[in-house]
Design a protein around this nucleic acid. Structure first.
Length: 518
DNA sequence: TTTTGAGTTGTTCGA
DNA sequence: GTCGAACAACTCAAA
C-alpha cells in the first residue's frame, strides 16, 4: 500500500493530517520535501550528541519536536524506582535547558505512551516519529505495538540503536544461539567492526511555528515525597554535561590505575558512569571513542590494561542486555531452572531483610554499603558484590528481594544490569559465580578497605575502633570496645548471622539443590 | 565430529 | 606464614 492509501486509512481512523502532507504526499517516484514535523520520542537516550533519532530527524529536514512521556505503567512490572525518578527529574531538567539553548523546547507529557503519541500527532500534524530502542521485555512489546499502529496510519516511524555497541539480535555464537558466557561473547564483539558515533541534534533548532502542549516537569511528580533523596544532589550531576565531565575526569585521573583502584570503595577509582549510561546521557560509542582517543594521545592505548578492562566493563553492560533480550523472564526467574527449588530461608516477619536494607547486619562492610546506597543512591561495585553475596548466601534470602531493593534505591537501576548482577551473585545465572564462592565480609573489608576509610565514613558508630577490629567488632576485647564507645547490641548490632555457620548452611543448601536434581 | 581447555570479581584447608 | 588444591557444572570455541 502506498503512502496515500495509508494516509486515507489514517483519516478514516479520525486522525487529522498535516496539510503539507495531505497536499504533497511522499511518493516513491517523486522527491518531495516533507514539511510535517518530526517527533523525536526520547526515553533512555536523554542526550543531544551521538543521537541517531535526532540525526534521522535532521536528515528528514522538517521541524523537530522532542518529547518525553512519563508512562510508568507502560514499563511492564518495572516502573522506574524512586532513586531513578530522582535522577530522571534532574536529567530532564538539564536536557530541556540544553534544547532551549538551541532554540527548541522539550515537550513533556504524562500518560499512556500510545495515547500521548496519538494526541501529539493530532496536535502537531507530525508525519514521522523516531526513537532509540530499549531492550526490556515489556518495553519491547509495547514499542512494537506502537510502531505497528503508527505505520498502519501512514506515519513514518523508525527506531534506532542509540544505547549499545551491538544490539542483542545481531549477536549469536557459531551455533546461531545467544552467548551465555562472557569471555567468548566479548571476544566475538571485539572481532566485529566498531560502531561509529552518530550525528546528533541540530545546533540551531528547527522549531515548529506552534509547539504542542507540555506539562511542567513538576507535574510528573518525580521527586520523592520524603526528603530521602535530598542529599543525592551532593553526589551526582545528572544530564549530558555531567556525563561528559564524569568520563573526562575518569579518563584523566583514574583509568590508568583502574585495574587495582576500582576495587577500593573509599576511592573514586571507577568511572561512576552507570546512571549516565542507563539514561543514555552518554553512549557506549562515545565512551569507546573517547577512551581510544585520550589513550592514544597519552600513548596508553591500546597498551593500557586499565583502558582494556574498563572497556570490558562496558562489555558486561552489553552482555547484560544480550541476556535480558534473549532470556526475557530472567528479571524474576533464575536462568538455571533448578534454582527454582533453592531452599531459601524463612523470614516471615521480614526482619532479616529489613536489617540488610537498613545496614544493621552487624557486619560493618555490609552495613557501610547499604547505608551508602540509601544516602547517595549509589554503591561501589565491590561492595555491591559483598552485600549481594551476604543477602543470598549468608541470609539465604531470595535474590529477587535484593534485586527489588536495588531497583528502588539505585540511581543507576537498570533491568539488564540488575538482573545479571543478582543472578550472578546467586549463582543461578549466566556465567555465574560458582556456588562455593561465598564472600567473607570480614576478609573483603580487610582486603579492600584496609585502612577502614569507607566503613568509618558510613558506619560512624564503630569509627573509633582500631583497624584491627573495625571489620569484626565482635572480636574486640571489652576494653577496646569500651574505649571506642561501642556497646554491641546497643550502639551497633551484633552480627545477625555467624559467618562460619551461615557459610556452611549456604553450601549445604547448594548441595541439597544438586542432590534433588531430577 | 569429538575432545579439550578455559572461563570477572573467593575462601578455606592442609601441607 | 605461604601456597596450592579443591570446591560443580556447563558453555563455547579451538584443536
Amino acid at each position: 500500500m502506498g503512502e496515500c492509501g495509508r494516509n486515507l486509512r489514517a483519516v478514516l481512523r479520525g486522525y487529522r493530517l498535516a496539510p503539507a502532507l495531505a497536499i504533497a504526499p511522499k511518493l516513491p517516484w517523486v522527491r518531495v520535501v516533507i514539511n510535517s514535523p518530526t517527533i523525536v520520542w526520547l526515553r533512555q537516550d536523554l542526550r543531544l550528541a551521538d543521537q541517531p533519532a535526532f540525526a534521522a530527524a535532521v536528515k528528514r529536514g522538517a521541524t523537530i519536536i522532542p518529547i518525553f512521556i512519563w508512562d510508568p505503567t507502560g514499563e511492564g512490572d518495572w516502573a522506574p524506582g524512586g532513586a531513578s525518578q530522582w535522577w530522571l527529574n534532574k536529567s530532564l531538567l538539564n536536557l530541556g535547558k540544553e534544547i532551549e539553548h538551541r532554540g527548541g523546547r522539550l515537550v513533556l507529557r504524562r500518560g499512556d505512551s500510545q495515547a500521548e503519541l496519538d494526541a501529539l500527532l493530532v496536535e502537531t500534524g507530525a508525519g514521522a516519529v523516531y526513537w532509540c530502542r530499549r531492550y526490556e521485555p515489556g518495553v519491547i512489546e509495547r514499542d512494537g505495538q506502537i510502531k505497528h499502529e503508527l505505520r498502519e496510519r501512514g506515519i513514518d516511524c523508525e527506531s534506532f540503536n542509540g544505547g549499545l555497541l551491538h544490539e542483542p539480535h545481531t549477536i549469536t555464537n557459531k551455533q546461531g544461539r545467544p552467548f551465555q558466557v562472557f569471555t567468548p561473547y566479548w571476544r566475538h564483539c571485539l572481532s566485529l567492526d566498531k560502531t561509529a558515533v552518530a550525528e546528533g541534534a541540530p545546533a540551531q533548532w528547527p522549531a515548529p511555528a506552534q509547539w504542542p502542549d507540555s506539562v511542567e516537569l513538576a507535574d510528573l511528580s518525580l521527586t520523592p515525597k520524603r526528603d530521602w533523596a535530598d542529599a543525592f544532589d551532593a553526589h551526582h550531576e545528572p544530564g549530558e554535561i555531567g556525563a561528559s565531565k564524569c568520563l573526562i575526569t575518569f579518563l584523566d585521573r583514574a583509568v590508568d590505575d583502574y585495574v587495582d583502584q576500582r576495587n577500593i570503595p573509599s576511592k573514586v577509582g571507577t568511572s561512576r558512569l552507570s546512571p549516565h549510561l542507563h539514561f543514555g546521557e552518554i553512549s557506549p560509542r562515545q565512551i569507546w571513542a573517547a577512551t581510544e582517543k585520550l589513550g592514544a594521545e597519552k600513548g596508553t592505548f591500546p597498551s593500557s590494561n586499565g583502558a582494556r578492562v574498563f572497556l570490558s566493563e562496558v562489555g558486561w553492560r552489553e552482555f547484560a542486555h544480550h541476556l535480558l533480550f534473549h532470556f526475557r523472564n530472567t528479571p524474576t526467574q533464575p536462568l538455571r531452572q533448578e534454582f527454582e527449588r533453592f531452599p531459601w530461608r524463612e523470614d516471615a516477619d521480614g526482619e532479616l531483610l529489613k536489617a540488610w536494607q537498613r545496614g544493621q547486619t552487624g557486619y560493618p562492610i555490609v552495613d557501610a554499603g547499604m547505608r551508602e546506597l540509601w544516602a547517595t543512591g549509589w554503591m561501589h561495585n565491590r561492595v555491591r558484590m559483598v552485600v549481594a553475596s551476604f543477602l543470598v548466601k549468608h541470609l539465604r534470602l531470595p535474590w529477587q528481594h535484593g534485586a527489588e531493593w536495588f531497583w528502588n534505591t539505585l540511581v543507576d537501576a537498570d533491568l539488564a544490569a540488575n538482573t545479571l548482577g543478582w543472578q550472578w551473585s546467586a549463582g543461578c545465572g549466566a556465567d555465574a559465580a560458582p556456588y562455593f564462592r561465598v564472600f567473607a565480609p570480614v576478609l573483603q573489608g580487610l582486603k579492600f578497605d584496609t585502612e577502614g576509610t569507607y566503613v568509618r565514613r558510613w558506619v560512624p558508630e564503630v569509627a573509633d575502633l582500631p583497624d584491627k577490629y573495625l571489620h569484626a567488632p565482635w572480636d574486640a576485647p571489652a576494653e577496646v570496645l569500651g574505649r571506642a564507645k561501642v556497646a554491641l547490641g546497643e550502639t551497633y548490632p551484633r552480627p545477625i548471622v555467624d559467618h562460619k555457620a551461615a557459610r556452611n548452611a549456604a553450601l549445604a543448601a547448594y548441595q541439597k539443590l544438586r542432590e534433588s536434581r531430577p
